[in-house]
Computed example of a mutant assay.
Amino acid sequence: MDLRPISRDVHAFQQPVTGEDIQHIARRAFGKAARLASAVELGGGMYNTTYRINLDGAQESFILRVAPAPEIQFASEHELMRNEYASVPYFAALGDLVPRVLFADWSREIAGRDWMVQSHLPGVPAPERLGAYSRDLWPGFFAQLGQIAGRVHSVRGPHFGPVAGAGYPTWSAAVIASITEIADDVSRLGLDAADLRKVADIAAEHGKVLDEVSEPRLLTGDLWTVNTMLDAHSPKPLITGILDLDRTLFGDPDADWTIRMATAKHDERAAFWDTYGPRRLSPAAAWRGLVYEARHLGSIRLERHRLNNPDGVRDTYQSVAAVLAQLA
């Protein structure tokens, strides 16, 4: 087998699995006679360890994603791969834009980690392809993202909170629990989480404003440019797939990462709203947006710590302080 891992520091969060484990995975997923021709680790993602695998005698490639070891996962990111698996039926309306799950194994008998095998989506990662187009074509890309996000946000859910699990009966309960989990993770790292706990307290004090959101809708959790694939040969940006939908939840569409990114700058991404629909912010919605921003910043703090970016971690404290000044 041609095994091509990415060279990583022994202390890096993402860690490879052995060639023997990958062969074992292939036999479990495709049958005892399956033999791997190659396994190439893919970069780009920052959480799961991902391989493009090929079987002897097969033309089609597959994607193997291996979750981090359970003991190194943050509580606020607990079993994200299982959450993605539970989300699959809710993404049915997106058809072949999302990969098919061909096999999933939560037994942890191989490498002590969850893993799944998915279909290989056509195209090239958008970060590698979008820059090849002139910027006057970029609005078309963001218009497609707006249409996709709108379709996702139209899906109704049975509860608030992560797709997997029992969830919460109210949006305020889900938001407060999420911020508290993030704060607990920050504290376990030895970092100051007082600012995030203050946000959780304010959210609890004004829970009725959060609970104006009474219908849970599906949120992608992480969809933006880095999670999209583009056609390799199209004369203009054409989205062929979306990836890594493991942070899905049910709640207020305004709380989605996609909406945060769409509003972050006034540039070509303004075309997002042409297909998604106009955004009309009431004072209550604007206030909720501040709470959501604090939650996003808490997650960013954790990710920057995981990536050994202390300056980035420090920056989040200033950003949360700015949010708190507006919430107070």
Rank of each mutant, 00 (worst) to 15 (best):
H120I: 00
H24L: 12
L218Q: 03
E303A: 15
P162H: 01
L80M: 14
P139Y: 09
Y85R: 14
E84I: 11
D2N: 13
L196W: 14
R269Q: 09
R28V: 08
I176Q: 08
E41K: 04
I259A: 10
R301F: 10
V320H: 04
I242L: 13
A183Y: 04
R135W: 05
K198P: 00
A132E: 08
A58C: 10
T220R: 02
E71T: 00
G277D: 06
N48K: 04
V155R: 13
Q144V: 13
N48S: 04
L145G: 05
L210I: 07
L218P: 04
A322P: 01
W106Y: 13
P278I: 12
G167P: 00
T49V: 07
L327T: 03
L223E: 01
A86Q: 08
H153G: 07
Q73V: 11
M229A: 07
S214C: 14
Y51A: 06
A255G: 08
W287G: 06
R260S: 15
R151K: 11
M229D: 10
Q147K: 10
E84W: 05
V313F: 05
A126G: 05
R129M: 06
R306Y: 07
V163Y: 02
F250R: 05
A26W: 01
N83E: 06
F141C: 08
S87L: 12
E212P: 05
V323L: 08
H266M: 13
R314P: 04
F62Y: 13
S178N: 15
G150F: 07
E268K: 08
F30M: 01
A111C: 09
W138F: 07
V66L: 06
G112Y: 10
R260L: 15
R301E: 11
L245M: 14
A262E: 09
A321G: 03
F103M: 11
S119W: 06
L245D: 03
G131M: 07
A69N: 03
D136W: 09
W115G: 04
A166K: 10
I182S: 08
G95F: 04
L327C: 08
G57N: 02
A39K: 03
L249C: 09
A111T: 09
I22S: 05
P127L: 06
T180F: 03
V98W: 00
G44A: 01
N48L: 00
A262S: 13
G298L: 06
E71A: 08
I148D: 02
L196E: 03
